[in-house]
Structures are given as structure tokens and as C-alpha cells.
Nucleic acid binder design. Structure first.
Lengths: 153, 153
DNA sequence: TGGGAATATATGGGCGTCAATGGGTATATG
DNA sequence: CATATACCCATTGACGCCCATATATTCCCA
């Protein structure tokens, strides 16, 4: 499986370390399995994360913008300066920077939610609540749901 | 990671030295890890910096502009003639030239903002303010943001 | 197929190394 | 000679690496 799926609830220890779920680690390319990137979600009080490969893609895309334009600066500031890279130790643990923990309200436990090409880290209760809300919203729009789910690959 | 990412706030000591963040140092090619270039940002009261290798890329960008336009002259003058090279000492510190510090309003602390292929140095408060403004401007143009951020790797 | 062994995962803690910072002294440069 | 800058050494706190354990999972063989 090369996608981030399922959800996990892991503890944060005294040193601030938390295990990246094993199945998530396996999604990362072997070459850079000891490094992930984290950033504040734009749409919710949660942290989003993924492998470094995705970041390089984004960098390339931004690079195509007009170097002297305002857009260029906005993108590169909002994205690159907000992104943090974190090392995953041999046991599969990493540190969530204080600022990101604050943003997501995370204290002693972190909830990991697979999102396909990336994952989200939530304060457990808020994360669960969010799943519920999302699901409800989705079911209320059965039409579009059907469209998405029944398309052939 | 071979990109300048994240942000760091480092102190300037009595001698005017400031640490280049460790992760930034690692982005520089090993061959010239003791040398960086600095110049005034064209668009903001901040200092931009990068490894010497990036010079060629800047030259290329300027070269794409119409040779006979005013822009060409303006850019090439205001960038190239303003570039200074600075040595990074064994502890990873360097000196910010007085003129550049004045330009950015930097006194006792410098804020380093990763920008992918280069980085910016700001007076901490101004830098934070700028991040906010950039982010807001970006969120108002969700369309282009989506294009850049959500494509799959 | 059931049960026990081997392995993997999540978690805890000790300790050495590195990064950021401060300061003394040598050296260079005008 | 005077000032600026590079090199050396020291300190502190954070982080990475190693080792350990308990639980969960997988594997294998009888």
C-alpha cells in the first residue's frame, strides 16, 4: 500500500516523541524514510504531513512562476517558511514542533488520519469530531458522493 | 533535504555574528559550505541569501527579461551590484554587513525564512507580519493555491 | 488448524553529540 | 598601529542514537 490510510492514536512521551504509525512509515520512499515534512493545515486546526518528495514537487511548480512576481513571494513564503522537516528516529518516532502542537491543540496524544497522499495529525477528540462532521456532510450530498465513488479508475 | 525550509530566530552577538541555521548550512554544497551570498530583496525590506551556486540561476532569470527593457537594467543593476559574499565560520556563523542590516531594520535578532531555493532574513517582527500578509493574500486566491498544492506527486 | 516461537510495534529512559551562543586571542588589512 | 574578522575553546540545552520492555502480530511447524 503506497497511500496513507486508516487512523491511529499514539502517545507523546516526556521528550515529546511520538511514533509515526508503522503503516505510514512504509508509505515513505525507502531513500528518505527518516524524514517527513509537517505544516499547518490551511482548512482546519490540524497538522498535515507527508514525505519530502511531495515538497520537492511543490518547489518545482513554484519555480515556474514568474520569479519577480508577487505570487512567487506569497507562495514561497507561505509554503516554505511554514513547512518544517522532522527526522524520524530508528524506532519510527519524531518530534512535533511546539508551534504546530499549539496550532492543533495537541498535548499528550496525537491522532493520525490517513488522507491518501498525505496524512493529518489531530488532537484526538477534535479529530474524531471532525471525522463525524465530514461524514455527515458527505452523506448529505449523496449525489456527488455517488459520482466520485462509481467512477472507474 | 536540499531546500531552504522552515523559519528560525537567531541572536546576533556583540561581534555581529549570527548562526546560519544548521538545516540551511546543509543545503549548501559541501564544496562551498563556508560561503554564502546576500543581497537586498527587491520586493521587501529583507535580505535574501543563498549559496554561490544560485548566482547562475539568478543570472539566467534576469537574462530572460527583454534585454532592451528598463527592467533588465534595473534588475541587473540592483541585484548584481548589491550582492555581497560572506564567509561562514567553523561554528556556522557569519556577519551581516551593516548596510544590509540597516535595510532590513535588523538589530539584535535575525529571523531566517526558508524560501525553497533561497532564504530571507528579516527583523523578527516584520518577518512574522509579512508571513501573515502573504498567507492572507494567498488564501484569497484559492484557485491558484489549489493548483500548486493539491496535485499529486 | 492450534499453539508456541519469532518478529514487529509502541513506548520508556540513559547518554553522547551537535547546534546555538559567548568570549579570548591571533591574524589580517589598511 | 588600530580595527575588523577568523580561529580556538567553552557552555548549555536540545536532539539523535542506543538499549530495554511489553504488547501485538505474524509465522511456522507439529
Amino acid at each position: 500500500m503506497d497511500l496513507f490510510v486508516s487512523k491511529y492514536f499514539n502517545k507523546i512521551d516526556k521528550k515529546g516523541r511520538v511514533s509515526l504509525p508503522s503503516s505510514f512509515r512504509n508509505v515513505l520512499p525507502k531513500a528518505s524514510r527518516n524524514e517527513i515534512i509537517l505544516y499547518k493545515s490551511i482548512k482546519s486546526p490540524s497538522i498535515e504531513g507527508c514525505g519530502v518528495g511531495r515538497l520537492k514537487e511543490i518547489a518545482k511548480r513554484i519555480n515556474y512562476l514568474d520569479f519577480f512576481s508577487e505570487d512567487y513571494d506569497d507562495f514561497s513564503t507561505s509554503i516554505f517558511s511554514e513547512i518544517v522537516t522532522t527526522n524520524v528516529d530508528k524506532e519510527g518516532r519524531f518530534l512535533i514542533p511546539e508551534e504546530l502542537k499549539l496550532y492543533a491543540g495537541i498535548k499528550t496524544e496525537a491522532a493520525f488520519f490517513g488522507q491518501g497522499y498525505f496524512f493529518q495529525i489531530w488532537e484526538p477528540n477534535q479529530g474524531l469530531k471532525n471525522t463525524e462532521v465530514s461524514r455527515k456532510r458527505l452523506l448529505e450530498e449523496k449525489k456527488s458522493l455517488r459520482t466520485i465513488l462509481t467512477q472507474q479508475q
